[in-house]
Computed example of a mutant assay.
Amino acid sequence: MLHDMSENHEKSSSGAANGSSFNEDNERNHPDSEALSLPSSVAGSGTLDRLVDTARDYARAAASDNTLRAYAKDWAHFARWCRMKGADPLPPSPEMIGLYLADLASGSGPSPALSVSTIDRRLSGIAWNYAQRGFTLDRKNRHIATVLAGIKRKHARPPVQKEAILAKDILAMVATLPYDLRGLRDRSILLLGYAGGLRRSEIVSLDVGKDDTPGSGGWIEILDDGAVLTLNAKTGWREVEIGRGSSEQTCPIHALEQWLHFAKIDFGPVFVRTSRDGKKALEARLSDKHVARLIKTTVLKSGIRAELPEKDRLALFSGHSLRAGLASSAEVDERYVQKQLGHASAEMTRRYQRRRDRFRVNLTKAAGL
């Protein structure tokens, strides 16, 4: 995936000599993974060419599809900005990157100022793209580090967290769904995602069995007492145990069994699209965007936070609301919640707990006041 650095310098200098600027269309037509190739000193062969293709496949799997899409957009935006300023994004220039960050924060152009977290993500995307092209971006360079530190000091705000979906909320949301095939599927998605504290990408990546499909992100084993989900998540492989509920109406495992039975799914993706009339399960795996749309739709239909305008209600909830809901609602030892969510630290788990422990311990009174 790495360009030879001298080759990049040669291309950059030859482009400048010809009076040509960076061509964004050419950049789009040459994916980063295609940059991985044999050294110029090694003669190609059928075996080596196949290994190059295999290595490119592994390189593309180094990050999630969502991350790769975000990084591609970050690079395209930065490359376009450089072109408009009469500069070339290759090789990396800390001075230009510092000016780019300042432009993003100030909102001096037609676009509004970006949040600190978005600017930080843009910088990560740019650094990642440089790495794929054989360059190293020194984020500690004073032209970058001091500008970014100033942006954070001047513009940083508390993180905006999505609202947690609590137990009463998920029951109200599920109650809005019909009992046709599509409704069975969506009911299973909501209950399983909530009880498992799953990311929306984890929900839709599940297969019925191990190694059912190449694009699988995990599989399900249904047992008498519940189900064990084996997930290949962003923190590595982990197992998630989801026990059976107190009633069939609210049990995520019963909902899953109902969906699999009536959809006649015993192999491949667990959650697939349905026909237009909602009566037949198709083969195509659902997109994770369906989970986000499902949450917002059922939130509106169920009347959650009905005192707010519709636009504000939609902005409050997302796929992460399921994970935050489990963390906030489960009255158990924090260690179990941390394990279920797959967090490396208890501090990260506490970020998901929306007001659960607020004023539970009153240090004012404990201090004698």
Rank of each mutant, 00 (worst) to 15 (best):
V337R: 00
L137W: 06
D186A: 07
L363N: 09
I304P: 03
R355D: 15
L223C: 05
S41D: 12
V147Q: 13
H30S: 14
Y194A: 05
W81Q: 09
D88R: 14
D266A: 03
L104H: 07
E95A: 13
R133V: 02
E283L: 12
L101A: 05
H9Y: 15
A172N: 03
D57S: 13
R273K: 15
H155T: 04
R273V: 07
D312Y: 03
W219C: 09
R313D: 07
Q258G: 03
S124P: 00
T176P: 04
A113E: 10
I203S: 06
K339W: 04
G46V: 11
D138G: 03
I242W: 00
L99A: 12
A87E: 15
R356P: 00
I222H: 05
K210F: 06
P252M: 03
D49Q: 09
K339S: 12
G209F: 02
I126P: 01
L198I: 07
I265Y: 00
L48S: 13
R182G: 09
T349H: 02
S345Q: 06
I304A: 04
F271N: 02
P159M: 03
S117A: 15
Y58K: 11
L38V: 05
Q132L: 10
R139P: 00
S247C: 12
E24G: 10
S247Y: 04
S40K: 14
P178N: 06
H261L: 09
A263I: 08
M1Q: 10
A227T: 04
I203T: 08
T297F: 06
M173C: 11
R69T: 14
R121G: 01
E34M: 09
D357K: 11
P89C: 05
V147S: 04
T364M: 09
D65E: 15
